[in-house]
């Protein structure tokens, strides 16, 4: 249990640092802003208490907000992601349910499953994020394109991350 908490704390620090130090600095005309730190919320165990998931999501969002001076913005988007996650998991559940210690990952559930899972939650998160950020109907379509192109970038980075780092953690165990 303790080692689980440690492992997740490490992943949290790593992902937030990658987000604020590298990904936040990608300046490609504003249409490609990957927010791959949400991977942290995606890989929490399936059986995590739902309320705990909400609280973790809230603080993850606040941490990223602190670095971007956008207090409340990421927190709000992360909360929606955390709220939607149990439903998405229910929709994607295998026929006889999840094992008690299932952790969503490419190795565990397969590429196709993970891809759908990530895509659904990323798009939900990004749509709320970008609309809250612009908060104007006059920029409706630009914001929509921004949210979708950034979602693509986020999904790509998340899949890369899965292959680069997180599989090794799981294999060692």
């Amino acid at each position: 249990m303790i080692s689980e908490i440690l492992k997740y704390s490490l992943k949290f620090i790593l992902l937030v640092l990658v987000q604020v130090l590298i990904l936040n600095n990608i300046q490609y005309s504003g249409f490609i802003n990957p927010y791959a730190y949400i991977l942290f919320l995606l890989i929490l165990p399936v059986r995590i208490p739902k309320s705990l998931l909400l609280i973790i999501a809230f603080f993850t969002g606040l941490t990223v907000d602190m670095f971007g001076n956008s207090i409340g913005l990421h927190a709000s988007a992360c909360l929606l992601l955390a709220y939607a996650r149990p439903m998405v998991l229910r929709i994607l559940a295998p026929r006889d349910g999840y094992e008690t210690d299932t952790v969503p990952s490419i190795i565990g559930q397969g590429f196709k499953w993970f891809m759908i899972y990530t895509a659904l939650l990323t798009v939900i998160h990004h749509l709320l994020l970008f609309y809250l950020e612009s908060f104007r109907l006059s920029e409706f379509f630009t914001t929509f394109v921004r949210a979708l192109s950034s979602s693509l970038a986020t999904i790509t980075v998340i899949i890369l991350f899965q292959y680069l780092f997180f599989n090794q953690f799981e294999v060692k165990k």
Binding site: L54, G61, S70, A75
Partner: peptide
């Protein structure tokens, strides 16, 4: 969820 969400929106507007 609604509680935390309204807290975030409050932060956002105040900011």
């Amino acid at each position: 969820f609604l509680l935390l969400q309204s807290l975030s929106i409050y932060f956002l507007i105040r900011n």
